[in-house]
């Protein structure tokens, strides 16, 4: 019973990471209708910003993790936003009128560029992520050990999701984003600047990926330049599971994939960890391509 509880906590904290990354996939898909492959690598860059920045920030604030943590998080979010916006401006914007396939291949190219560029810049070996979140033991019974790290990860994730919800539902840019996602040409006719909205979407998505990178590094303190590949793919699968383009769907999908993966690892075999998500993807695409909360789209003839 308590082992089950332990697995659930692990699953939800892993799911938090997937959910945060999935939000970025789903939002970009909402406005641009394509998979932003390098998004998983933005998550990796976010973690590396934390790796380099944290040891410098912590002494500056007198060793207080309570202050250093949020500052590192914000810095990483800023850097990744800049990265996301740059990629969009340099690579995607000129290709927007071209066939979808061209954009898809470009996105894969950028993703590989970040991964292998990262190996050159950061070095290919795993690095140990600095301690940014306190890892005190909260509950310690013979059957269940609960540390503070997963609790903080889950709480931060929920906090960021509420903030995102506020931005998307209540602010002007958020409303514009929803309008563009609903009908791009109509939104443009209503005077919405599409380019601004797209840039803003990349800012939101990339900052969430950066946050996920920091939280991931704190949960599993070994990072490397290829660390974004599988979490990125699984987060994408989460977005599809929740219904691509649907923001709450991405969050729900992330938690579900995190839980399933943790259970498969815990109760079946860890070697199937990476295959299970793809299995889920294929099943959803075959039986309910619109996902849990998504709506079906049809092509006009």
């Amino acid at each position: 019973m308590s082992e089950l509880l332990q697995q659930i906590i692990n699953g939800i904290s892993l799911g938090s990471i997937y959910a945060l990354i999935a939000l970025g996939y789903t939002m970009v898909y909402g406005v641009l209708r394509f998979i932003n492959f390098p998004h998983g690598d933005a998550f990796m860059v976010g973690a590396f910003v934390g790796y380099y920045a944290a040891p410098r920030i912590v002494p500056l604030v007198g060793g207080s993790l309570l202050i250093a943590g949020p500052i590192t998080l914000l810095l990483s979010m800023l850097v990744c936003s800049a990265l996301g916006v740059t990629i969009e401006k340099l690579a995607y914007r000129p290709l927007r009128p071209r066939p979808k396939l061209t954009i898809l291949i470009t996105a894969i190219g950028i993703s590989l560029f970040l991964e292998f560029g990262g190996q050159l810049v950061f070095g290919p070996d795993p690095k140990s992520f600095p301690t940014l979140l306190p890892s005190a033991v909260i509950i310690n019974t013979p059957n269940l050990v609960l540390r503070s790290t997963p609790v903080i990860v889950i709480a931060t994730t929920v906090g960021l999701m509420l903030l995102l919800r506020f931005i998307v539902m209540k602010t002007k840019l958020g409303t514009a984003m929803r309008a563009v996602s609903y009908n791009q040409s109509a939104a443009s006719l209503m005077g919405i600047n599409i380019d601004t909205v797209i840039s803003f979407t990349f800012v939101l998505g990339s900052s969430l990926a950066a946050a996920a990178g920091i939280l991931y590094g704190s949960l599993y303190p070994s990072i490397n330049p290829l660390m974004g590949v599988f979490p990125g793919l699984k987060a994408f699968i989460s977005a599809v599971l929740g219904g691509i383009g649907n923001i709450p769907g991405a969050a729900i999908g992330g938690f579900i994939i995190g839980l399933i993966e943790t259970f498969v690892t815990g109760y079946l075999s860890p070697t199937y960890r990476d295959a299970i998500a793809f299995g889920i993807l294929i099943l959803i695409l075959l039986f309910k391509p619109s996902g849990i909360l998504g709506r079906a789209e049809s092509e006009k003839v």
Partner: peptide, 9 residues
């Protein structure tokens, strides 16, 4: 691989 990916883009 960096050259590969960049040339792809």
């Amino acid at each position: 691989m960096v050259i590969y990916s960049l040339s792809l883009v």
